[in-house]
Amino acid sequence: MSTKRARALGWRIPFPRSVAGLWIFAIGAILLVMLGVQILSGIILAMFYVPTQELAFDSIIHIMRAVNHGELLRNMHAIGASLFFFACYLHIFRGMYYSVYRRPYVKMWFISVTLYVLLMVVAFLGYSLVWGQKSYWAATVIASFARAIPWAGDTLYAFLVGGYAPGTPMLGRFYVLHFLLPFVIVVATLFHIRTVQSAFAQAMKKTFSEKSCRRLLFDYQITDLDVIKTTLFLMLFAWFLFFAPHYLSSADNFIPADPTVTPAVVAPEWYFLPFFSILRCFPNELVGLTAMCGSVLVFYFLPWLDTSRARFRHYSRLVKCGFWIWVLNACFLGWLGSKALVGPDLTDGFSNEEGWIRAASQLSTLIYFAWFLLVLPCRRFLEKQE
C-alpha cells in the first residue's frame, strides 16, 4: 500500500522519535511473533506430554524420537523461550533508558511489568515440566523457599508440591497452569497494545476517532521497520534451531530426574539467573525471598522512584553511565547465579580460600537496588527539568 493511500485512510499514528531512532530496541512486533510461536508449539507438545513422575521425561524423549518433526517442535519451544526473554529484556532496558514509565505511559508500563511477571511464572512452570536432573532440582529448591514465608509458607508449599516431595501432583498442577496462563498473557497483550496506541497518541497530543482506535493499526513506518526487525530476529532463531539446538540448554537436563543425586550446581535457565543469584546469596531464606521478589516488583514503582521530569536530550551523562553500569551488573549477577555459592558473607571480605561468589553476589545485589533506591530519586538534582 502506498504512503498516500495510508495517509488517506487515516492509519497514521505518530510515535516518539526514540522508536524510530533506536529501532533495534523497539521490538514489540518480535515479542508478538515469538508469543505466537510459543503458544502454537506448546499446544502441539501438550498433545504428547504425560505429566507424571514416571513418564514426564520419557514422554519428552518420545516426542523427540518418535513423533514426526517432534525434535524440531521441542527445540523450537525451548529455544523460543530463551530468545523470547532475550527480546523481552531488550524491550525492558529500552523502556528504562528512555523512561517510558512516566506519564502518559504509566498504565502501559504497569501492564508491561505484569506481562513480564506472567512470562516468568509460565517459563518456570514449563522448565519444571522437563523433569530432567537440572529442572527437577531447580523446581525443588525454588519450591522449598516457599516455606520461608511466615504463617502461609507450609500451606503454599503443600499447594505447590502436593505432597512431601515433588512428584506427580506437582507436575499435574504445573502442567495445567503452564497451559492456561499463556491465554491470560494473550488477553493482557491485547490490553498492552491498546495502551501503547493510546499513550503514543496522548504523547503526541493528537486525538483519534473511535473507528481509528478500534483498528489498532500503527504507523506504516513502524510496520516497515517491524518487518525488518522480525526477519533479522527470525534468522537468529533459525540459526539456533538448525545449527545449535542445544547450545542454550544444560547437559544435566538430558538426564532423568534423580532425587538421590544432587547436581554440583543447582541453577535455573539463564534468564532467571540474576534473580536466582539474589535469592540464594543471603543466609536467611526469608531475606533472600524478599529480595528476589523485591527485585521484580520494584519495576512497578519506577514512576514514583524516578523524580526527574527531564526530556531525553537533557539526561545527565552520569545517569546514563550509571544505567549501563546497572545493566552490566545485572549480567554479572546472572553469571554469579550459574556458579556454586561458596565463600563468606560480604562483611567478611572477598579474600578467602573457599571462594568469593557469595560476597560478590551480595555486593552486586546492593548495586542492583542502589539504582532504584538511590540514583533514580536523585536524578532531578542532576538534570534540567521541564
Rank of each mutant, 00 (worst) to 15 (best):
S128D: 12
K229R: 15
E386L: 05
F282S: 07
F282A: 10
L341E: 06
W324E: 01
F200R: 03
G163A: 15
K206Q: 15
D224S: 06
L72N: 03
H91A: 01
F237L: 14
Y98S: 02
W304V: 15
P182E: 13
F48G: 01
Y247A: 15
Y101R: 02
A6P: 01
E353G: 02
V265W: 03
F200K: 01
E383N: 09
W371V: 07
W270K: 10
S144R: 10
D154C: 08
A123C: 12
A143N: 03
G343H: 03
W11A: 06
Y98Q: 01
F312V: 09
M170W: 05
V100L: 02
K134T: 11
T195H: 05
T347A: 10
V227M: 07
F332L: 09
I357G: 02
V327G: 02
F25L: 04
D348P: 00
G95Q: 04
K384A: 14
A330C: 06
Q38K: 11
L225T: 12
S308E: 10
C331H: 00
L190C: 00
W23R: 04
L22V: 01
W109N: 06
R65S: 12
V141F: 01
A138W: 07
R17D: 14
V117C: 15
A165M: 10
P51Y: 10
V296L: 15
S198E: 01
Y157T: 00
I24Q: 09
I222F: 07
C331V: 08
A264R: 07
F275W: 14
F15T: 13
W239P: 01
V141T: 04
N75L: 08
P256L: 08
T114A: 14
W151A: 07
Y89E: 07
P245K: 08
E354K: 04
R317N: 04
R358S: 03
S361E: 06
L241M: 08
F312D: 10
A257K: 03
S250P: 01
L382E: 01
L180Y: 09
S361F: 03
F57P: 04
T231P: 05
F124E: 13
K206L: 12
A56F: 06
V67F: 08
A291C: 13
K384P: 06
Y127A: 15
P182N: 11
F275I: 13
C88R: 00
A78S: 10
F233M: 15
G355Q: 07
M34T: 11
A66K: 11
W356D: 11
G322E: 05
G153P: 13
I63S: 03
Q38C: 11
A20G: 13
F86Q: 08
E353W: 05
H69K: 11
V161F: 04
F233R: 10
S99D: 00
L180D: 11
I92H: 04
I13Q: 08
F85Q: 10
P263T: 05
A165V: 13
R5F: 09
E54I: 08
M170Y: 05
S59V: 05
H69W: 15
C321I: 07
Y300M: 14
Y89S: 04
T140I: 00
L232C: 13
S18E: 14
D58G: 04
I357F: 03
R12H: 11
K384E: 15
E285K: 14
L177W: 09
D306P: 12
G21V: 09
A158F: 01
L305I: 09
S2M: 03
P245G: 10
A251C: 00
H69D: 13
M1E: 12
A152Q: 02
A56R: 04
C293D: 08
F242W: 13
I142Y: 02
